[in-house]
C-alpha cells in the first residue's frame, strides 16, 4: 500500500476493530482520541469529545478499504431496537462455521447450526415468526437430530460423529455467543442474532433459508424491512400470514409518513402495527401473557411452546415435547 495517507494510526484503528469485532461511533471516540494523541507525539492530548463524526467516518473508510484487500470488509447496520449504528469487520468469503470463528469445537459448531435452524426454521413459520429461540428450546437442541440427519443428504454439518452437548456445555456456548457479540439475550431469555451476527451471516442466511426460486408473493424465511432494506428479525409484520411485508419498529413512523394510507403495499390489507416478528410473536400472545400472569415467568419454554401451539405456529413443536432431561444427560 503505497498510499501515504495510510498511517500507524490507521493500522492501530484496524487492530482496534479486529479486537472488538464491532464498533460504534461512541465506542470509537476514545480510541481515536488516543490515536490522535499518539499521532501528535507531544504532550498535548486529544479528548474523546473532540473526535468528530467525519473523522470517524474517514477512519472507517480507510480501514474498510485496507481490509478489503484481504476479503474482509467493514459493514454497518442499525440495531433493530436501539437504533444505534454498528460497524463490524466482516469476513466476506466464508461459511457460517468459520464466520463464528474457530474457538468452538466441531460438536459445538454443529449445535450452533442447530440453534440457527431453530431460529430460522423451526420457530419461524408464516403464523409465527419468532426468529429467536428460548433458552429451554435451545437446550433441547443439545443432541443432534438423528432422524433429520438420516433424511438430510447434506452431511456437511450433520456428520455422523456429532455428539450431544452436556447441559452445562450448551449454557457455556450460548453465554459465549452472547459475550462474543454474536447473539443477544432478551429479558424473556430469548436468544436472537445480534447486529454483528446478522451482518456476518446475512448472505449465508438468505442462501440457506430462503428459496431462490420462490414466487415473489410466497412467504420467505428471511425478510427485509421495506424501509431500510436490512434483515428484520425484530419488527412488525403484515396481518396476512403469507405476506412478506415487514418493517422495523424504528422505521415504521418514517415509512408511513410518506404514504397516504396505512395499508400494506403488497397485499393491501390494513396495517395493524400490532402483529410482530421476533420474540414478541410469542410473548405478546394471549397464551403467553396468561401464563405469565399465572406466575410462570419464562421458566418454561413450555410456556413459549404452549403459546406457539395455541397459535398453530410451530411446525413440529409437539414432537420434541418429550422430556429434555433424558435427552441431555445420558450421553457420554
Amino acid at each position: 500500500m503505497g498510499d501515504s495517507r495510510y498511517t500507524p494510526g490507521n493500522r492501530a484503528f484496524l487492530q482496534a476493530i479486529l479486537a472488538r469485532g464491532t464498533i460504534t461511533f461512541e465506542e470509537a471516540r476514545p480510541v481515536l482520541a488516543e490515536i490522535f494523541t499518539a499521532d501528535r507525539g507531544d504532550d498535548s492530548e486529544v479528548r474523546a469529545d473532540q473526535v468528530t463524526q467525519e473523522e470517524f467516518n474517514d477512519y472507517i473508510d480507510v480501514a474498510s478499504e485496507a481490509a478489503s484487500l484481504f476479503d474482509y470488509e467493514i459493514r454497518s447496520t442499525v440495531h433493530q431496537v436501539t437504533k444505534q449504528r454498528i460497524y463490524a469487520l466482516v469476513n466476506t468469503t466464508s461459511d457460517p462455521q468459520t464466520q463464528l470463528a474457530t474457538t468452538y469445537s466441531p460438536d459445538e459448531l454443529s449445535f450452533i447450526k442447530r440453534v440457527l435452524d431453530g431460529m430460522f426454521e423451526k420457530y419461524n413459520s408464516p403464523r409465527m415468526e419468532v426468529l429467536a429461540i428460548a433458552e429451554m428450546q435451545a437446550i433441547k437442541l443439545a443432541r443432534p437430530d438423528r432422524r433429520q440427519s438420516q433424511v438430510d443428504a447434506d452431511a456437511q454439518t450433520q456428520t455422523p460423529g456429532d455428539k450431544a452437548l452436556k447441559h452445562s456445555e450448551v449454557e457455556n456456548v450460548l453465554a459465549s455467543l452472547v459475550e462474543g457479540g454474536w447473539f443477544e439475550k432478551s429479558e424473556e431469555a430469548y436468544y436472537s442474532l445480534s447486529p454483528r451476527g446478522l451482518l456476518e451471516l446475512r448472505p449465508w442466511l438468505v442462501e440457506t433459508y430462503n428459496d431462490p426460486d420462490a414466487d415473489p408473493s410466497e412467504w420467505q424465511r428471511i425478510k427485509f424491512c421495506e424501509a431500510c432494506k436490512d434483515i428484520v428479525t425484530i419488527g412488525l409484520r403484515c396481518v396476512e400470514p403469507n405476506c412478506n411485508f415487514r418493517l422495523h419498529d424504528i422505521c415504521e413512523d418514517a415509512f408511513w409518513r410518506t404514504r397516504r394510507e396505512k395499508k400494506c403495499p403488497k397485499c393491501s390489507n390494513a396495517w395493524s402495527g400490532e402483529k410482530y416478528t421476533g420474540e414478541r410473536a410469542v410473548t405478546m400472545t394471549e397464551a403467553f401473557q396468561r401464563g405469565r400472569r399465572r406466575g410462570g415467568g419464562w421458566q418454561g419454554s413450555t410456556l413459549a411452546d404452549e403459546a406457539i401451539r395455541e397459535e398453530g405456529g410451530g411446525e413440529d413443536a409437539e414432537e420434541d415435547a418429550d422430556d429434555p432431561e433424558e435427552n441431555i444427560y445420558d450421553d457420554e
Binding site: 500507524p8 494510526g9 493500522r11 492501530a12 484503528f13 487492530q15 482496534a16 479486537a19 472488538r20 469485532g21 476514545p30 480510541v31 488516543e34 490515536i35 494523541t37 499518539a38 507525539g41 470463528a101 474457538t103 459465549s176 459475550e179 462474543g180 457479540g181
Partner: peptide
C-alpha cells in the same frame, strides 16, 4: 504510543 488498553482491549473471544 499506539499500544494502549483503550485502543487495543482484550479480544472479545471468548469474552
Amino acid at each position: 504510543a499506539y499500544r494502549t488498553a483503550t485502543i487495543l482491549p482484550p479480544s472479545k473471544t471468548p469474552s
